[in-house]
């Protein structure tokens, strides 16, 4: 693998890992505070899977660049993160959390299906490992999409409000990074425009069926280097113990 290709793949893997990490972190904030006990359990389960996925993706970054996963997570500043703003947002209400989860799960299902055929074998193996787990997530968040979208007037209103915030942000999941073309040519990573179309083809009808309507098509952030202020506060919380003693083995 030449250096350009290696760098491009590492950047893609890092962005994917960062997304999973942020979502796991936000979802875990519900543990002990969910609307029903069953969801304390379910969301903590999902957060755990996502953290497991993040660890696997960081592990593949390490194989390519030698960077230690814990150093990457606990000693990078916001500007070095490549997560999408959608997953950095505070957990919001249950509608926001579940709609974000649905939109992300649909993206991950589509992504993993393609990555399972990646020409870079470690990526293909990792995706194959994650797909059945993701199926449980997708089924769960899809059920919540319908339940809240079609539940009461209030739950529908909250879902629509969440959609209005999330929809412009979702585009960043598919934003290009330098070197994407190389990855595509090698068959290492799917074409993100095609991925976006496939994703839209699934989520738009599902949102409509759940009684959610037109939403502003305001342009959201594109470049993954651009973050919201929420990432700073998230990182301050996440990194405080690790950074309090850099020499320590935790």
């Amino acid at each position: 693998m030449n250096d350009d290709l290696r760098a491009a793949l590492a950047a893609r893997l890092l962005a994917t890992a960062d997304d999973e990490l942020m979502l796991a972190h936000r979802n875990a904030e519900w543990t002990g505070h969910a609307p029903i006990l069953e969801e304390d359990i379910a969301l903590a389960n999902i957060a755990q899977d996502e953290l497991g996925h993040a660890s696997i993706w960081y592990g593949l970054v390490e194989e390519l660049t030698g960077q230690d996963p814990d150093r990457l997570v606990f000693f990078r500043d916001a500007g070095e993160y490549r997560s999408a703003q959608m997953v950095e947002q505070p957990r919001g209400d249950w509608a926001f959390t579940m709609l974000r989860q649905y939109l992300f799960d649909a993206y991950e299902m589509a992504l993993l299906a393609r990555l399972a055929g990646s020409a870079y074998q470690p990526v293909a193996d990792a995706a194959a490992r994650m797909r059945n787990e993701e199926l449980y997530h997708y089924r769960h968040s899809s059920a919540w999409l319908r339940r809240l979208g079609l539940g009461t007037a209030e739950s529908n209103r909250r879902m629509q409000a969440a959609l209005d915030v999330l929809w412009p942000l979702a585009g960043q999941l598919f934003s290009p990074q330098p070197g994407d073309a190389l990855l595509n040519v090698e068959g290492y990573w799917p074409d993100l425009n095609e991925l976006r179309q496939a994703w839209s083809g699934v989520v738009i009808p599902a949102l409509e069926e759940a009684g959610l309507g037109e939403t502003a098509s305001a342009a959201g952030p594109d470049d993954r280097r651009v973050h919201s202020a929420h990432l700073d506060t998230l990182l301050a919380d996440m990194q405080m113990v690790a950074r309090a003693d850099e020499e320590a083995v935790w």
């Binding site: 796991a24 972190h25 875990a28 904030e29 543990t31 002990g32 304390d40 359990i41 903590a44 389960n45 957060a47 755990q48 953290l51 497991g52 993040a54 660890s55 960081y58 996963p69 814990d70 997570v73 606990f74 919380d237 996440m238 405080m240 113990v241 690790a242 320590a248 935790w250």
Partner: peptide, 19 residues
């Protein structure tokens, strides 16, 4: 303390435990 856990492994273990 889940949000402050200082390593990926400790974070995973703690979420699992509380769950």
């Amino acid at each position: 303390w889940i949000e402050h856990a200082p390593s990926l492994r400790r974070k995973l273990i703690l979420i699992a435990k509380v769950q």
